[in-house]
Amino acid sequence: MKREITFAQAINEAMAEEMRRDPSVFLMGEDVGVFGGVFGVSEGLLAEFGEERVRDTPISEAAIVGAGLGAALVGMRPIVEIMFADFVTVAMDQVVNQVAKARYMSGGKARVPLTIRIANGAPGAAAAQHSQSPEAWFMNVPGLKIAIPSTPADAKGLLKTAIRGDDPVLFFEHKMLYSRAGSAPEGEYLIPFGRAAVRREGEDATIIAIGGPVNAALSAAEQLARQSVSVEVIDPRTLVPLDLDALIASVRKTGRAVIVHEAHRRAGPGAEIAALLAEKAIDYLEAPILRVAAANVPIPYNPDLERFVLPTAEDIVEAVMKLIRYEI
């Protein structure tokens, strides 16, 4: 049975189901309780689970993440929320030096079942400190796992997997996805990490799209289809672990790859994926690997400037066509 739910509802359901299932799961963050989350993601959880398990915290990101880690080390399964991805910088020591490394530094003994939910992406005219997509920063930090769903169904299944796992997970939720609806299975299901989803099959080029811009990639694929260009759209769903096999299989079929994300172009997730494809799949490529990403400038406030900086479906179409026309 399928039904339509929004991305925010999907995350809400995942948290509620896991909290019902396991008393060690709890949620804390800024305005997650009475307010229901600044994007409404935790609406109703306070009423069902009470103040002890749905905890409004001070505006205090280092304490939120660090306390989540401490609770995890003594047997809880905390979900902590970073209201805007930009604010994770305040908790950077906790994420990078403590959470990510606790297990390794202890010789593999620490268990860190901590899920850090982070709202990323540009919601429109939010400017440079409320719009960032910093997922690639953390790809460079061994010890973390990174999930970045693009559909309600994936958000639910991946979040449940994150909560049940024994490793720390950064779970990126693009703000512009929260109100988008999509079909999702009824009831209990999990989606494993490290399995990419083929959003659309195609023959001529592969678009590897990450998080929020998956929708722009699908719209670009639709436009390209009208020009008789058949595009495959792949959503990795998790960046660590990364389903490289699926990406290679697609590139092997199409011979062309465009990587799309809202993180800045320089050293964004696409840089790593392009390097991996260059290492492992260069024989299949008929054209260079292109990236469509946010320009290497802070995200501007003015909506026209913002649109100019962020990747659009038109940018993706243009990139694919460049590859289609490319001749060695």
Partner: peptide, 11 residues
Amino acid sequence: GIPMAVGAGLA
């Protein structure tokens, strides 16, 4: 390590 101790106390 101080926030970690606070988290353990919370648990």
